[in-house]
Design a protein around this nucleic acid. Structure first.
Lengths: 198, 198
DNA sequence: CCTACCGATCGGTAGG
DNA sequence: CCTACCGATCGGTAGG
């Protein structure tokens, strides 16, 4: 309480608190008073550092998507075999989720409450992320390492679904670490794509 | 507007409208005034038919979970081979999502806003649903039809994740129907579990 | 199902 | 970052 946890600017502190609350109670379920109270200031004082509630959301979501996007795009454009790239992308995604479960929940579910240009920007990032995975799967099918009859779209949706479900069950305090969970998830998802088993 | 769409009781009509709105804008993002307006009555009039906002949510969520649960439990307890049972469970889940995307979204994400006994009941249903899938996977590993090195928990989470992501991308108006999507999803997810490919 | 209304709370602002 | 406050809106109720 009396210890100052400010290693960051007040603005960054507010964003951290908002990320936590938006992830836990949702954007519409969180009030500016909740945020102010958790930060330790009165509600009106927040507006010295931020423009408004949606600004908080769009900054959290944009930064979160950019993180996922940058990693996936880098991996997708590598010249490594498709199965290796897919494994790397899966493991990096799990690692990012383990880093901050709440941030991931906000990125996955709260972007719907953005409006106008903020909303449009997210739709684009979402599509880009998907395309990085589609590129890997397409390459895998073309090179013969993945099954020729694989439905590329369904396969990518299955992989993204499995990844995006991770924050619902993974706990960094659990018996199995993020590295190992990513490996086992990759084992299962990879085999669903491969041309020949084990 | 002037046509009466009441094939149901007023109460059922309210529940339908609430399902749609909770799915679209979330529980905390939907007001009783939103619901009243979509139903076509004044806000206070809703309370002649329902107890309150949380009652609406818990009825929608409970009924939704029960539907998923009953189907999965029935399939899991069949004596068919594990791969057949898993395929059936996947297809039934996709069919249920196709029946009502909004209801599924409420079941998956809005139950967090329930409190007390309503919340506890959902946690239990959630666990039961997962256990139906775990039973199938366990049987498959024991009978040798699934890989012996398969991580049962991770495999089930991957399958549930892929299934629970379906409402984010599947459209009944799309080019591929629910039946076919379920089949292709099962193809990919099944192969991720099987002992020998193709 | 409507009229009329309750106390509480919302996001945000003016002025210091 | 606080004091003091704004108009709007919230879930819900009394009485018919």
């Amino acid at each position: 309480m009396s210890t100052r946890e400010k290693l960051n600017t007040p603005r960054e502190h507010i964003l951290e608190v908002a990320t936590h609350l938006f992830g836990e109670k949702g954007y519409t379920g969180t009030t500016m008073r909740d945020i102010a109270s958790a930060v330790g200031v009165l509600p009106g004082s927040l507006y010295a550092h931020i423009d408004g509630k949606e600004t908080l959301l769009t900054e959290i979501v944009d930064a979160g998507f950019d993180h996922f996007l940058a990693t996936a795009a880098e991996i997708a454009s590598t010249s490594a075999p498709a199965d290796e790239r897919l494994r790397r992308a899966i493991k990096e995604h799990v690692k990012a989720v383990a880093d901050s479960r709440e941030r991931t929940m906000v990125v996955l579910h709260q972007w719907r409450f953005l409006t106008g240009a903020n909303y449009d920007a997210v739709i684009e990032k979402r599509r880009d992320y998907q395309e990085s995975f589609e590129r890997i799967v397409d390459d895998g099918v073309e090179s013969g390492i993945f099954r020729p009859d694989l439905d590329r779209h369904v396969a990518v949706f299955a992989i993204l679904g499995a990844l995006n479900w991770v924050p619902e069950w993974f706990s960094p305090e659990g018996p199995v670490g993020a590295e190992e969970v990513g490996e086992r998830l990759a084992d299962t998802l990879l085999q669903g794509c491969m041309s020949h088993g084990g």
